[in-house]
Amino acid sequence: MTAALRYGPHLLPEWTPPLDADVLHSLLVKVRRWQPFDGEAVFDDISAVLDEGMVSEEQVSPLTMRLHGHHSRLVEIAVASEADLADRITSQLVAQARTLHPTALPDDYMAAAGRLRRTGWIVNALFERLIALGCLREAA
Results as ranks from 00 to 15, higher is better:
S26W: 10
D108W: 06
T2E: 10
T99C: 11
Y7L: 09
A78S: 12
E14K: 00
D45E: 05
P62L: 05
L93S: 00
V94G: 05
S61D: 13
L19F: 01
V29Y: 06
R118T: 11
L85C: 10
E14N: 01
R66A: 10
L5D: 09
P62N: 03
A4Q: 07
Q35H: 12
I89Q: 08
L5P: 04
K30N: 14
S81P: 07
A21L: 13
M110D: 14
M54G: 14
D22K: 09
L126V: 03
E57M: 11
L50Y: 04
G8Q: 06
V94S: 01
F37Y: 14
S56G: 09
L100E: 14
F37Q: 06
R88D: 14
A41Y: 02
I46V: 12
P9N: 14
A132T: 12
H71C: 15
E58F: 15
L126G: 03
L74T: 07
S91H: 09
L67G: 01
H71W: 11
W121T: 15
I46G: 05
T103E: 11
R32Q: 07
H71E: 13
T119P: 11
G69S: 07
T16W: 00
Q92D: 13
H68G: 13
E52T: 12
G120S: 00
A111Q: 13
A132F: 12
P9W: 11
R73K: 12
T90K: 08
R33F: 03
L12T: 03
Q59K: 13
S61T: 15
W34R: 14
F37A: 06
E58G: 09
L116C: 05
L116G: 01
A140T: 14
D20K: 00
A3D: 10
A78K: 06
G69Y: 07
D108H: 06
L130A: 00
I89V: 13
G53E: 14
A111L: 11
A113I: 02
L105G: 05
A80S: 15
L105F: 11
P62G: 03
V123T: 10
A113Y: 02
L19V: 02
I89K: 03
